Computed example of a mutant assay.
Amino acid sequence: MMSERSSPAESDGRDMPRHSGVVLVHGLGRTFRSMQRLERRLNREGFATHNFDYSARSRAFTDLVADFQSYLESLPIGGTRIDFVGHSLGGLLIRGVLAQPQEFEVGRIVMMATPNQGVGIIDRLARTGVPELLFGPSVKDLGTTASTFRSLAVPQAEIGIIAGTQPFHLLNPASWLNSVLQAEILHDGTVEVASTRLPVMADYLELPISHTFMPMDLRVIDQVVAFLRTGQFDHDADSRSQSERFLAAWGELLDTLKDGLSDSAAARKSRSPGGET
């Protein structure tokens, strides 16, 4: 585990006000269900949560930011202090909405495996059209030379960044490609570790976790709670035992299978004559 601390002056150690909420934003190709384990933990800790759901398959990045803005405006959060937690593309959507004035006070932000400097594998595959075919038009804005998100300012808030360093996961197709095309680069299977950094961070942490299932990992969830409460990650947290990791891995797999079945059922319902559109 690698960590990087800011100076103590960048965090005041204050507790999270109970009346404020945490907005959760999932990553590309996932759904709000991928954030539900984290959401349940936050609820048990006394945090109110708002779990934003979106589909990037037919939407450009700017469209997704507009959708997210509309979602925030629909919430009764005006005049309150709101924290954010985003996974991968979710972190960029957070940066996108916070680039414009809001009616709420921005609290703390946790970014999990967010490609703040772009995704190298997208550059390598851009000419093939495969990334856009698999993930939709928003993926075009995630290359390292894309200007859409690289022009976004860093939010004026306490930002904690978690990067993964496990380069391969059986259920992450991108990690198969990265293991061949970017074997010499430290990455989480999808996003290069160096790409997660921002020029201003309250705290930074690297964990041996793969990209896709980061929001479900118990170590990550513990660190998200720690940062939201104190503005710092728990750099002294003990590593879990092998048995705990084994059980957590099975939990992640079962959650993924359940998400897939639920998404398939929802898709079948939407295609049925009397289903939703």
Results as ranks from 00 to 15, higher is better:
R108I: 09
I109P: 13
I109A: 07
I109M: 00
I109Q: 00
I109R: 04
V110Q: 04
V110P: 01
M111T: 05
M111S: 10
M111V: 10
M112V: 13
M112T: 14
M112G: 14
A113C: 15
A113Q: 11
T114C: 04
T114E: 03
P115Y: 01
P115F: 02
N116M: 07
N116G: 05
G118W: 12
G118E: 11
G118M: 03
V119E: 09
V119A: 02
V119H: 07
V119C: 06
G120P: 09
G120D: 10
G120A: 00
I121T: 08
I121P: 11
I121A: 07
I122F: 09
D123W: 00
D123P: 06
D123H: 04
D123G: 04
R124C: 03
L125H: 01
L125T: 05
L125G: 08
A126M: 11
G129E: 02
G129C: 02
G129K: 08
G129Y: 12
V130G: 15
V130H: 15
P131W: 00
P131C: 04
P131Y: 02
P131Q: 02
E132Q: 14
E132A: 09
L133R: 12
L133H: 13
L134F: 02
L134W: 05
L134P: 02
L134A: 11
L134H: 04
F135N: 13
F135A: 15
F135Y: 13
G136R: 01
G136E: 00
P137A: 08
P137V: 01
P137T: 06
S138Q: 06
V139N: 08
K140Y: 11
K140S: 15
K140V: 12
K140A: 11
K140Q: 12
D141Y: 03
L142D: 05
L142S: 01
L142Y: 06
L142P: 05
L142C: 07
L142E: 00
G143N: 08
G143P: 04
T144M: 08
T144P: 06
T144A: 00
T145M: 09
T145W: 05
A146G: 03
A146D: 05
A146I: 09
A146M: 05
S147Q: 12
S147H: 11
S147K: 12
S147P: 12
T148V: 10
T148D: 12
F149V: 15
F149C: 14
R150S: 14
S151L: 13
S151W: 12
S151H: 14
S151A: 14
S151G: 14
L152K: 04
L152T: 01
L152Y: 06
L152R: 07
A153M: 10
A153V: 09
V154Q: 05
V154L: 10
V154C: 13
V154H: 07
V154S: 12
P155D: 14
Q156F: 12
Q156K: 12
A157M: 09
A157Y: 00
A157I: 08
A157P: 13
A157W: 06
